[in-house]
Design a protein around this nucleic acid. Structure first.
Lengths: 230, 230
DNA sequence: GTAATAGTGTCTTTCAGACAATATCGA
DNA sequence: TCGATATTGTCTGAAAGACACTATTAC
């Protein structure tokens, strides 16, 4: 029997998968790294957790520092990644968070980072991300796809006020399939708590003016919105 | 601008929520701690991650060392917990894993720990767990409840071969609600890939002999099994 | 036979998918 | 007027909930 040993020492980081819809595509917030390792490469926003800081608070702080986005964003823990060697600086575990941003809060500023931008989430353009961030991003997109099925979080990817058609576009882009406008309309308007009507209308899309809604207060969709699963 | 600082140092642990059904109740694997902090208190099995070790591997190793259970258990990452002060030894982040154990592999041995046992998961009996393990356990139970809806993992909580009635008992215990035997039978036997018949029968429960099944190869249930949500 | 559990069938309701028809705008 | 989009409605098929009924064992 040996005496008590001090436990192995790790650095802990948070990384954020922040998704939004732009140009009718699902896009992800990335920052250009200003320092080694991977200086000049694109990566998910994130950084070291302080020892007196909760994980979620660290995620919110890093998001604020690096991209000045998303006060009041819905943040959800996605998973943790600790494969040995994933960070050349030494043993590092990262806790990934997922956030969905409405299409309006797009202006992005860098402060800690050399730059920040949105980019598509398709496999090709994600390949070049630093660390294991391509894999984390893929997990985030998967999670977002699932969340849209059984939660009303699709509304988080819309502006504060939106039409049913805009919400449908979110689903179509995230799921990569077209949905029948009439059945979708029936589904979302008749699910209690999904949408709350503002009474206002917009005619921005041409055609008959559409009702404007904001996100309702439902926590979970019953029954879920179904999609063709592979 | 300051120079590069060494990042804050954390210990990283894994903790396991291992659930099974015993005595018609959902039970959880706990170990009695053999050393400080919380010596003599019950806790979830778990321990420090080595720096050259993947998180999932560490979870499997700790489970093996502390309880000699579960070679070939389904292991799934549950979430990470890093509230400052959660471990009196210093800054510690724990990555929790969820596992579902069939009712047969119950004998439990301690080696690192002073003892190991199953205990009910109800709020009352979980209160006394060390660290923030009561909260982790609650999250694990929540996750298990959800997984039963849209995956065939309920079969993982049964022996290798089981009857539809045994499977139904699993759902009833985990969800805390009774299900109609006839509708449940129709649902699980007609969902492709959920169950695979062995051809054998058992009469252990009295009455007409029941078909024995083993878990099928479906990854996801379409449509899901629904439960009354609150 | 009875008691007990397994399994089938049937009716009703709810809801998704397909799609016709109508409504209300701009040009 | 037309072209575009929004919204309502209708029909059909899949599947859940309720529950009668039959099947097969032990006693």
């Amino acid at each position: 029997m040996v005496g008590p040993m001090s436990p192995p020492s790790f650095a802990v980081t948070v990384d954020l998968v922040v998704l939004t819809i732009r140009e009718r595509a699902l896009q992800c917030l990335v920052v250009k790294r200003g320092s080694e390792p991977f200086a000049g490469r694109w990566a998910l926003p994130g950084g070291f957790v302080e020892t007196d800081e909760d994980l979620g608070d660290a995620a919110r702080r890093e998001l604020q520092e690096e991209t000045a986005i998303g006060t009041g964003l819905h943040l959800e823990q996605l998973g943790s990644y600790g494969t040995p060697g994933r960070d050349p600086r030494g043993p590092t575990v990262t806790v990934a968070y997922l956030a969905l941003a409405g299409s309006l809060d797009d202006p992005v500023a860098g402060s800690d980072a050399a730059g920040a931008s949105w980019r598509g989430v398709d496999a090709g353009s994600a390949e070049s991300l630093a660390f294991d961030h391509a894999s984390i991003l893929a997990d985030g997109v998967d999670r977002a796809r699932s969340k849209l099925e059984y939660t009303p979080l699709g509304a988080q990817l819309c502006p504060a006020e939106f039409t049913v058609a805009q919400l449908r576009a979110v689903y179509e882009v995230v799921w990569g399939q077209t949905l029948d406008p009439r059945n979708f309309h029936r589904k979302v308007t008749q699910t209690p708590g999904f949408l709350s009507p503002t009474g206002r209308r917009t005619t921005a899309d041409g055609g008959r003016p559409a009702q404007l809604y904001r996100a309702g207060d439902a926590g979970r969709l019953h029954p879920p919105i179904t999609r063709a699963h592979e």
